[in-house]
Computed example of a mutant assay.
Amino acid sequence: MSKKFKVILAIVIVALIASRWYWEAQQLEQPIIVESRVDLDKRRIDVSYIVNSQDQTTLQMVEIGNESFYPNNSFATFMWDDTSAYSNVQEYTYYAIRHEEILLDERQHAYLLENKHLLDKGIVIFNHYSPITITPTILNETLLRTDYFKDSLKVDGHTNFRFLLNTTTELTIENIEVIHPTATYQVFYMDEVAKYPFIMEEGATLEIHFEQSYAFSTYGFLDVIVRGTRNGQKFEERFSPNFHGIAPEKAIRAYVKEALQ
């Protein structure tokens, strides 16, 4: 064995060891919950989370109060089957994004409605990890449906888009709330940044410009809640546009780093 070959072999071995060490250093000790939602309006619970890319863990159930809620693909068994199927919303070098949905039956929905004081805390149980406490986003059934708006979505880039609301009547806009774990946004009216409250004329268009709107489920959850008055009467309308913005790997690594600090 020549000296040159020995040097090359040593370099390869060191590189392999370093690569393995770096891989292990990136591994999560437990899943990171990106988004958890209790949507009483749509009668569902959703949980999106980040896991190690080769991790076969699955979400077994969500506990709220004295109730247990099982994902749609679960057989609601206490066997904790390690072979349960899972699918990734998106895969990366070190991590994967997964999402589970739970559709509420009549009894479960009634329980949550009667116990709203319990909704600010829940527990997510995986089959390979200790339970994780969550503080879910709560979307109530108190929204008042209106026919004051026509909405549309204009895609400007991979994770950037504009959500447009055109009014069918004159309105006073008191507040606009956006629910999403990563999106940044600005509200524009008459080509200027909106300052609340403001009056929207009939036929006028309001634009909400979104950036960093990443989908953590098959269709990214994004809620726009508009509150205001019409002829002195309060209204509250909710819009949930679908989008498909996949987070780049750099963004996911940054999200993980921040979550672990």
Score class of each variant (00 low, 15 high):
A25H: 10
L118G: 03
G157N: 08
L153E: 14
I125R: 14
P71H: 07
I32E: 02
Q27V: 09
T142A: 15
G157F: 10
E101W: 10
S87D: 14
S74P: 12
M61E: 05
I132K: 11
R44V: 00
Y92H: 04
H109F: 13
E141F: 04
S36W: 02
M61P: 05
P136Y: 10
G122E: 02
W80F: 14
Q54C: 05
F163C: 09
D120Y: 09
Q26T: 13
S53G: 08
N115C: 01
Q90S: 15
R37T: 11
V51A: 08
S152T: 11
H117D: 11
L144I: 13
I33L: 03
L139C: 07
I123R: 14
A76W: 03
Q108G: 05
I33C: 03
Y148D: 05
R43P: 01
R107T: 12
I64Y: 08
T77S: 12
K121D: 11
Y95G: 09
T57W: 07
T146C: 06
E63D: 00
R37Q: 10
E106N: 10
I32C: 03
A76V: 03
R162W: 09
Q27W: 13
Q30W: 04
R43F: 06
L143C: 09
E67Q: 12
I134M: 02
H99F: 14
T133Q: 06
N115K: 04
L59M: 08
S130R: 15
I134R: 04
L28F: 07
V34E: 13
V38N: 04
T142C: 11
F149T: 08
S68A: 06
P131Y: 08
R37Y: 09
V34P: 07
S152I: 02
I123M: 12
Q108A: 05
S130P: 00
L119Y: 06
V155L: 11
F149A: 11
E24C: 00
R37F: 07
N66Y: 00
T133S: 05
I45F: 04
I123C: 05
N115P: 08
E29N: 15
T93Y: 13
L112K: 08
S53T: 11
E106V: 03
N140R: 13
T142V: 10
P136T: 05
I134A: 00
N140D: 10
Y86S: 06
E100Y: 01
V124M: 06
D46M: 08
D151R: 12
N66G: 01
D39N: 15
F75H: 14
S68R: 13
P131F: 08
N140Q: 10
F75E: 15
K121A: 14
L118I: 00
L103C: 07
V155Y: 11
T133N: 04
K150W: 05
D105S: 00
I97M: 03
H128E: 08
Y70D: 02
E141N: 15
V155R: 15
E24H: 06
A96C: 02
K42A: 09
R44M: 06
H128Q: 15
L112W: 02
Q54R: 09
I138P: 06
Y111D: 06
D156F: 02
Q108R: 03
I134E: 00
E24A: 06
P31M: 01
I102M: 10
